[in-house]
């Protein structure tokens, strides 16, 4: 193997003959001794403390003279015999792996939707879902308040015992509860969609618009008995699934329309943490 030698920067010679180094001094040791005695006196005898105090004060003045007005230095001669050995240069080169190259996988997603897209998507999906639910109310029970009251039964237990007439009639409290509950859940689900959409392998609209609503419906079907028995007793599952699909398709469409932003995965951790780092080139 071929080698050449050179002196690296670390071993470079300088023009100077001396280097300034801090001068040796006893005072820190004496000061430490004084402080130790001062404290040791607590458990032995006050005279020990007194001695320690005197020693510490003397040492403090000695130390003071070491650093004021200027820190004392001594000129350390540069010893040519102490120069490091020359560095051996290895001519063999090394292959480096690159992100995304031969079997090295990139982390997905490379781009993500902004949270705001999830917010608006959730609102749009929620509106579509509410529209479908009201349509169901009109067709099945001739009242748009019917599904709203049923939803509110989750937080207003009285509605669970209500008659069908009461459920058809407008109820202010139920409307507010259902409105807030539906809005909040819609926005949260929308944000979850926005985060998850880029992670699906392919055909994101299919996953988000069809499969996720079906999963969600299944989840609700198994738990509705516990969270909202009143609704469970009266629910029409085909319509419920249709509402979910409405949310998924509309919400997913709105989210997919947003401009995605790239993740910082190509950045180094130092850049992500805003630690000092050499400037990057902006492409």
């Amino acid at each position: 193997m071929a080698h050449e030698t050179h002196h690296g920067e670390a071993g470079e010679h300088s023009e100077q003959t001396h280097i300034e180094m801090p001068a040796p001094t006893f005072w820190p040791m004496v000061f430490a001794f004084g402080v130790a005695l001062l404290l040791a006196g607590i458990v032995t005898h006050w005279a020990v403390s007194a001695t320690g105090f005197v020693i510490a004060v003397c040492a403090a003045f000695g130390w003071w003279h070491d650093v004021i007005p200027h820190e004392r230095h001594e000129e350390q001669p540069i010893e040519p015999a102490l120069r490091p050995e020359p560095i051996l240069v290895e001519t063999r080169s090394v292959v480096r792996l690159q992100l995304g190259e031969g079997g090295h996988r990139r982390r997905i997603p490379e781009k993500i939707h902004p949270y705001s897209a999830g917010f608006w998507g959730g609102l749009a999906g929620g509106t579509a879902m509410a529209g479908l639910a009201c349509l169901y109310g009109l067709i099945a029970e001739h009242s748009i308040w019917y599904p709203i009251n049923l939803l509110a039964a989750m937080v207003i237990p009285d509605l669970g015992q209500a008659s069908i007439e009461q459920l058809r009639a407008f109820n202010g409290l139920a409307f507010v509860a259902a409105f807030i509950g539906h809005g909040v859940i819609s926005v949260l689900v929308g944000v979850v969609y926005a985060v998850m959409l880029p992670m699906f392998p392919k055909y994101a609209p299919f996953w988000a618009g069809i499969l996720m609503p079906l999963f969600w419906s299944g989840l609700v079907a198994t738990t509705l008995d516990i969270v909202n028995p009143a609704m469970n007793a009266r629910i029409s599952w085909p319509w419920f699934v249709a509402c979910q699909l409405g949310f998924g398709l509309v919400g997913g469409f709105v989210i997919a329309r947003s401009t995605s932003i790239s993740t910082m995965q190509a950045w180094s951790l130092a850049e992500r943490a805003f630690l000092e780092a050499p400037p990057r080139d902006e492409k």
Binding site: G11, E12, H13, I19, M21, Q76, I78, E79, L82
Partner: peptide
């Protein structure tokens, strides 16, 4: 290493 660690 020498007292001054690095000459330069």
């Amino acid at each position: 290493p020498p007292e001054y660690n690095f000459e330069k």
